[in-house]
Amino acid sequence: MKLIKTEDAVGQVLCHDITQIIKGVTKDAVFRKGHIITEEDIPVLLSVGKDHIYIWEKDDTILHENEAAQILYEMCKNDHMHPSDVKEGKIELIADCNGLLKVDKEKLKKVNSFGEMMIASRHGNTPVKAGDKLAGTRIIPLVIKKDKMERVKAICADAPIFTLKPFHKKKAAIITTGNEVYHGRIEDTFTPVIREKLAEYDTEVIFHETFDDDNQKITDGCLAAIEAGADLVICTGGMSVDPDDKTPLAIKNTGAEIISYGAPVLPGAMFLISYYNGNVPILGLPGCVMYAKRTIFDLVLPRIMADDKVTAEELAALGEGGLCLNCDHCIYPNCGFGKGW
């Protein structure tokens, strides 16, 4: 590209969009890349502060910002997402379905360390809805070396930076535990909370039983639920270290693989997650899920709905950001809670 005085630009081709900003009125391009400048355009260009402009000079060693932005988009895109129109070297990725956004943090960091380009996204492992903005890409200068873009492409040669895993319909089972509920001493206020949270997703509760603090009965209940077709089993209560709290033992005795009993999250430290036969989650939910606005259950549930298996290492990473501040006005997930993994 070549810098020239605006008054001398008649007949030249713009190599970038020219944006006009009027507070409270507009922020948009008055001229687009590729526009051939006319005599009538000169006063308009001067009115938006362009005493000098860049015009396009063909050079096979460089790429225009829009061409380079397309390369960044290709490095990011995956199934179930589409691009916005390219504008001023920027392309955004938009979700095509409800699902779980996954981000390859190492690749993202490498691209953003290259210089002269950027990709900004939502946090990974967060739920999104169809139409939500997932990420934005941009080239910083108006032009960039072609060989630099070729080098950065190699970072994503094996797989793109982003993945959007669609949510799947689940057949859920709720196992309510506790002598106090089983014998009618108190009302079961836990199950309605679980039903409400499951209702945020495409779920059908096909099994619900209440048991006293008998670990064998709870074990048998979990297995009966799976036999009935449940692909998600949720056990409520009985998760502390009191003598009558038998849920962790009951889940273990199903033969499920215990991924973790305990998580660095408040509320939710006594949470248990396991997988029966490798693919059916059996969860043990502590009492805080019944009364706290947001807990470990809210962090894990989207991953379960997307069939995205949770690991012990990932749970350990939740310590940073794992403290819910219990704000009077809850704005989750648009806050820092649970952004550690």
Score class of each variant (00 low, 15 high):
His183Gly: 00
Val143Trp: 08
Lys153Gly: 09
Cys156Trp: 00
Glu187Thr: 15
Phe211Thr: 10
Glu187Pro: 01
Asp158Met: 00
Phe207Ser: 04
Pro192Val: 06
Glu187Ala: 11
Val143Glu: 13
Gln216Thr: 13
Asp213Gly: 09
Glu187Trp: 01
Ile155Glu: 00
Glu196Cys: 03
Ala157Leu: 01
Glu196Ala: 13
Glu187Gly: 00
Lys171Trp: 06
Ala173Val: 09
Glu200Asn: 13
Glu196Gly: 06
Asp147Ile: 08
Val143Asp: 08
Asp147Gly: 01
Asn215Gln: 14
His208Ala: 03
Asn215Cys: 10
Pro166His: 06
Asp158Trp: 00
Ile194Trp: 05
Met149His: 04
Ala157Glu: 14
Ile155Gly: 02
Thr203Leu: 01
Phe167Gly: 02
Ile174Lys: 06
Gly184Arg: 02
Lys169Asp: 03
His208Leu: 10
Val152Pro: 07
Val193Trp: 04
Ile175Glu: 02
Glu180Gln: 11
Asn215Tyr: 15
Arg185Tyr: 15
Thr176Lys: 03
Thr189Asn: 12
Lys165Trp: 01
Tyr201Arg: 09
Glu209Cys: 01
Gly184Thr: 07
Phe207Asn: 00
Phe190Thr: 12
Pro166Leu: 09
Cys156Ile: 01
Leu198Phe: 14
Leu164Gln: 05
His208Glu: 15
Ala154Met: 12
Ile174Glu: 05
Ile194Glu: 10
Phe190Glu: 10
Thr176Gly: 02
Val152Trp: 02
Asp212Gln: 10
Glu200His: 12
Leu164Thr: 03
Tyr201Met: 01
Asp158Lys: 00
Asp147Thr: 14
Lys145Glu: 15
Pro192Ala: 04
Lys169Val: 02
Thr176Asn: 10
Lys153His: 03
Asp158Leu: 00
Ile186Glu: 04
Phe207Trp: 14
Phe207Asp: 02
Val152Ile: 15
Ala172Asn: 08
Lys171His: 15
Val193Leu: 04
Lys217Val: 01
His183Arg: 15
Lys171Asp: 10
Cys156Phe: 01
Ile194Ser: 02
Asp158Cys: 00
Phe207Leu: 04
Ala157Ser: 12
Ile161Gly: 09
Lys148Ser: 12
Arg195Glu: 15
Asp188Phe: 08
Phe190Ser: 13
Ala159Ser: 12
Lys171Met: 09
Ala157Cys: 06
Asp158Asn: 00
Thr210Ala: 13
Ile174Cys: 04
Pro192Lys: 02
Glu196Asp: 13
Thr203Gln: 03
Val205Glu: 11
Arg195Trp: 05
Phe211Lys: 03
Gly178Leu: 07
Glu180Ile: 12
Asn179Gln: 04
Glu150Ala: 14
His183Asp: 12
Ile175Ser: 10
Thr176Glu: 08
His208Asp: 04
Thr210Val: 14
Ala154Ser: 10
Lys217Tyr: 01
Tyr201Phe: 14
Asn215Asp: 13
Leu198Gln: 09
Glu209Met: 08
Thr191Ala: 11
Ile194Lys: 01
Thr163Tyr: 13
Ile174Thr: 06
Arg151Trp: 07
Tyr182Asn: 09
His183Phe: 15
Asp213His: 08
Thr163Glu: 15
Asp147Gln: 11
Glu209Pro: 02
Ile174Ser: 05
Thr191Asp: 01
Val181Asn: 05
Thr176Ser: 11
Asp202Lys: 09
Ile194Gln: 07
Glu204Arg: 05
Pro160Glu: 09
Lys170Met: 07
Gly178His: 07
Ala159Cys: 07
Glu150Arg: 13
